[in-house]
């Protein structure tokens, strides 16, 4: 039996999770979570840890020289550095709207990068 203690980051409550499993994750048993998102987080964290990534990208606006962006869902951790390095090299033209897609399906992860604010000038 394998065991691991985790702290859930799905919300600010910070539930202390306890995970137990055998060879594969098929029999994964999670305790300590106060909501279903805790179990989902632990499962994902053990199989393929991923994070929401936020950053800023250079823009053509004089007033807002950098615009905030984020991934629309958790990006697998091994891809985060590559995404950030790519974002810092980009320059985008305004106007942009909140939710507009900047990068689609980054490295076939099916994760998109979207703008998190609307900038018109």
């Amino acid at each position: 039996m394998k065991k691991r203690d985790l702290i859930c980051i799905a919300c600010p409550s910070g539930c202390r999770l306890h995970a137990e499993w055998r060879g594969t994750f098929e029999d994964l048993n999670i305790t300590g979570n106060r909501c279903p998102r805790g179990a989902a987080y632990a499962g994902r964290e053990l199989r393929n840890p991923a994070r929401i990534v936020t950053a800023v990208v250079r823009s053509s606006s004089a007033e807002h020289p950098w615009l905030p962006v984020r991934t629309d869902r958790e990006l697998p951790k091994p891809l985060i550095d590559a995404l950030l390095n790519r974002l810092y090299r980009m320059r985008v033209e305004i106007p942009v709207s909140r939710g507009d897609v900047l990068i689609e399906n980054f490295e076939n992860s099916s994760v998109n990068v979207i703008f998190s604010s609307t900038t018109t000038r």
Partner: peptide, 18 residues
């Protein structure tokens, strides 16, 4: 400026990184 330094969290402290 942002972008002047490469992001390489895997190498930081030799851990598994993010």
């Amino acid at each position: 400026r942002l972008g002047d330094l490469p992001v390489n969290t895997a190498e930081v402290r030799g851990g598994e990184g993010a």
